[in-house]
Design a protein around this nucleic acid. Sequence first.
DNA 1: CTGAAAGCGCTTACAG
DNA 2: CTGAAAGCGCTTACAG
Lengths: 328, 328
Amino acid sequence: MVSIREVARMAGVSPATVSRVMNGTAKVDEEKAQRVQKVIQETGFKPNEVARSLYKKSSKIIGLVVPNIENPFFNQMAKMIESEAYDNGYRVVLCNTNDNTEKERINIQMLTSMNADGIILMTSDEEIQPEIEKCGIPVVILDRQITHSEGTVYIHGDHYQGGRIATEHLIQCGCTNIVNIKGPQIFSSGRARYRGYRDVCKKYMIEEQCLECDYNFKDGLLVAEEILARYPKVDGIIACNDMVAISVYKVFSRAGISIPGQVQLLGFDNIELSYLMTPELTTIAQPSWEMGRKAMEMIIGDINYENGKREFTFPVKLIQRETTIPQE
Amino acid sequence: MVSIREVARMAGVSPATVSRVMNGTAKVDEEKAQRVQKVIQETGFKPNEVARSLYKKSSKIIGLVVPNIENPFFNQMAKMIESEAYDNGYRVVLCNTNDNTEKERINIQMLTSMNADGIILMTSDEEIQPEIEKCGIPVVILDRQITHSEGTVYIHGDHYQGGRIATEHLIQCGCTNIVNIKGPQIFSSGRARYRGYRDVCKKYMIEEQCLECDYNFKDGLLVAEEILARYPKVDGIIACNDMVAISVYKVFSRAGISIPGQVQLLGFDNIELSYLMTPELTTIAQPSWEMGRKAMEMIIGDINYENGKREFTFPVKLIQRETTIPQE
DNA sequence: CTGAAAGCGCTTACAG
DNA sequence: CTGAAAGCGCTTACAG
């Protein structure tokens, strides 16, 4: 790796001039500029970004922290964010926390100390606020809320409405024995959806029937077995996300219970798979593209625009497919 | 963000001493050390890693470049690698290239210029070798081979044997009209598996029947339709990976063709989903855990150990599940 | 237009 | 044991 000094020496100019040619930050004599360009070409010189960012305090890197890289919902989101970022001249580095709060902290620190220009955080740790404050770079909270969030930007789908819509839909499909597989109640998404379910139950004077489940296949399998054992009369299931819905489908069809014939089923997130499975899964979709876009906008734009608006709630919608059958 | 200078001032010592206390790089008077520790505590001082890495030329960061973050195989791999890295005191940042060779180049440059200690590369660009050479940090090629690879470490599953095993298995299941959905032939994985298929066809004097397909759901759907149209007599399908197998299953079951009743099917990679779908998918597994581990080992250990061995081929194995039925 | 100098925030020989 | 100094590779006021 040649340095700027080498290049300067070879071109017979000062390092400052090389810098100016590279960055176009000032007028440089045409002929000298040519010489510099030529040397850069020949040597394949690439400026050291570490040195550069030490001075500039910017790296054109956005950090994206996700709870679990094996959850397609986050990957979908990541893809959107990435594409937005690239279009704006930023790179994005992905950090997977595996729902480990310790790793989440470490990742935020790493991103901070590598001079990331911003962090988009899908957190697994509601109490992460102090860490965020400390890091001193723009942070956008995505999907899952944190406590003491005043002042931090929060972008999310309307999970509460999601919970309501899901429940109303199953009722409209004629289900009278609905089991709600709650997402982890340590996450705001899980809590809000549960509240939606609960409120609709109240409205129709239906008794609540809940279990809790992590957002992954494995736990979904376990919980599905439990439903079989505890709620033999179930005729409708709200899974906390599509992954869990897929697990439920598997366990139930193994048990000889037909979906949607005997039990109707829906999930959340509208991951690509929900459309690929057979039967196609009914689900509640979030506008992940718009959300990702908004997240980038807030990071790279002025975080204070829109009158300092800090919270952005995006509408969710029902994607009715084959695991539920509305009654006429 | 306080700097080391601040801390030094507050503790009444020099920056050098603070540095020594932080890093334990030299003996420091106990009492002074205490003072420094106290100030670090109080101020929450974290050293600027950019500055540190500018000097040390190491960042304790491993870059992991993946072709497509929506392919569970890569995520599985990433998870393994991450866990290995963490256990060894490294952080990993993930870069998604979306099979875009331009982005791949940019990501490698970014990783280089942020002083990553190594790159694990699952490439989409066979011609990336010059870029690798230029970057001057340890690079391990994973899963997909590049051209002019002498000297670079290459870790991969035995794709050729995978192709053979898959074909032999379908034959053993009684299939006489096997269609091979080749992976992209611009990737070594796709080519090697195809060669395996071809050689087994020759051995049994079977005529080749091939289509080519990208490693994703969407293209899988298209290719499946094409099989329906072009090969009505098909009774066995080798999908280029599990994602494509899932797509094939969907299209065929929509078309009223029973799997494995009328057509037997298998995929590659043994992603978690292959076990979750109904029926469970027969597939060829790679030991992704061991491969990820080896990749990390090569990056952080001496890349020249094991007598300078450069290529590591890992055995694959058939996971027979429900989409194929071996004959007695 | 252009170079010498100072500085980004750390670390580590070098003296003492 | 410890501080002043030099240096990591850039960038940008500052003078000219």
